[in-house]
Write a protein that binds this DNA or RNA. Structure first.
Lengths: 226, 226
DNA sequence: AATGGTATAATTGTATACAATCAGACAGTA
DNA sequence: TACTGTCTGATTGTATACAATTATACCATT
């Protein structure tokens, strides 16, 4: 009757299921759950203050993403990803980001080019001042813009999926100022190739860009999965 | 304590949800549902003789696969895939199958090599006799074996996802005897490269193999999405 | 006729009830 | 002890109930 007891959780952008989904994924990727740990619907539901239903739906989605393995009538188990998996993801991305840059050459709009130029410019600025937060944000934006510029729903989808996995790593690598600067130079070169509609060059540079990221991490003795 | 060996190998009988999921996906890919058509949980449930619950779960999974778009509190709508999407999938696959063959060079077991040789041999036999059914089956097997030989969980996962989309096309292309023969010759060449542990060659051949498939379809005036 | 508001219906979101299945304990037997 | 069958509790699979939200139809007002 009275409209006062409405949900105060104003982030109506995400449904309950969406929030549960993100929470569990985050917990898996962050290592809160051990490998092969059983994820009980009821336990998680109680933990998050929701019923089993949204938890079930989230687990089914995570199964499709490969983070969870469901054995019928038995349970859901954490599959997680190993360091090798992370390495594989980077290699795969190096190919696909290359292809993506090539397609972007063919389909990019002037507005998108402008946006990329702005991103490169701003990154240069923030890199000097060591603004980690903004740098990571801009890095994401740069790649996402190229995903969209490829005008390939499928490729965008695949690369965006991987995005969740590499998110944490980006924060680490870009914390090094020198890498942030170099990374931005590479972005700038990729952008130039795209502006010149040089597909071969764009593909090659984007491919190398990812490979350099791997090299940077391993050179520092860091792990891709930390 | 004991590590619970989570088996992904799904010889599992499909749950209701699994069947509903496959059915809806099939119906979307086959064009039974029009683009942007609303998928009502209740309607589909009644149609398949199940309640809303498994239908909901299936729709949520399909959303993650990109075949369905869910607008919160409103409904689920068919996103489907266009002919361009199919073309993109083939191009993406050409890269990833190449990478997969490269990795297979590094990790393949003797048993898997034996299996591939058997597949090539049997395909040659069935191609002569125009046994479509078996040819398609063997074609699938060939590719899946290489996916596994790559020993990359991630790459296997991505390529297996695409598999569903190209399944229908394979049946069409391989119906042409000449293509079936040529395709098998290409398989044989890829296998040779893998046996010689020649990564560059294997990647190049596997890449070309997919590109030839596209060429074959378009040359026949066929569509990738039919 | 056009507009706007309200009641009503349809649909989704979540919670819960019940059935099916599975794991582990325990007792009986040899 | 080793084996085996049954019971019990726990957990998942599905169906259904109810709440929240959205769409639609209808009437009143202008």
């Amino acid at each position: 009757m009275n409209d006062y007891d409405v949900q105060k959780d104003a982030s109506d952008k995400y449904s309950l299921r969406g929030r549960v989904f993100n929470k569990i994924r985050e917990d898996i990727l962050s290592g809160k759950y051990a490998q092969s740990e059983e994820l009980k619907e009821n336990t998680i539901g109680v933990e998050l203050g929701v019923s089993r239903t949204p938890v079930r739906e989230a687990l089914r989605q995570l199964e499709l993403e490969g983070l969870v393995t469901i054995i019928p009538n038995k349970g859901a188990y954490v599959t997680g990803i190993s360091e090798k998996d992370m390495h594989d993801i980077y290699i795969i991305r190096s190919y696909l980001e290359g292809l993506c840059a090539r397609w972007a050459c063919e389909h990019i709009t002037q507005a998108q080019i402008d946006e990329l130029e702005e991103i490169v410019y701003l990154t240069e600025f923030h890199a000097k001042k060591d603004h980690h937060e903004q740098i990571v944000e801009l890095d994401n934006k740069f790649h996402e813009t190229i995903y969209e510029a490829s005008q390939s729903k499928i490729l965008n989808h695949v690369l965006s999926d991987f995005h969740h996995y590499v998110q944490r790593i980006r924060k680490i690598t870009l914390a090094s100022e020198s890498r942030a600067v170099n990374s931005n130079k590479e972005h700038s070169a990729i952008l130039d190739a795209i502006k010149n509609r040089n597909g071969d060059e764009a593909e090659r540079l984007a491919h190398e860009h990812i490979m350099n990221t791997i090299k940077n991490i391993t050179d520092q003795g860091l792990s891709l999965y930390s």
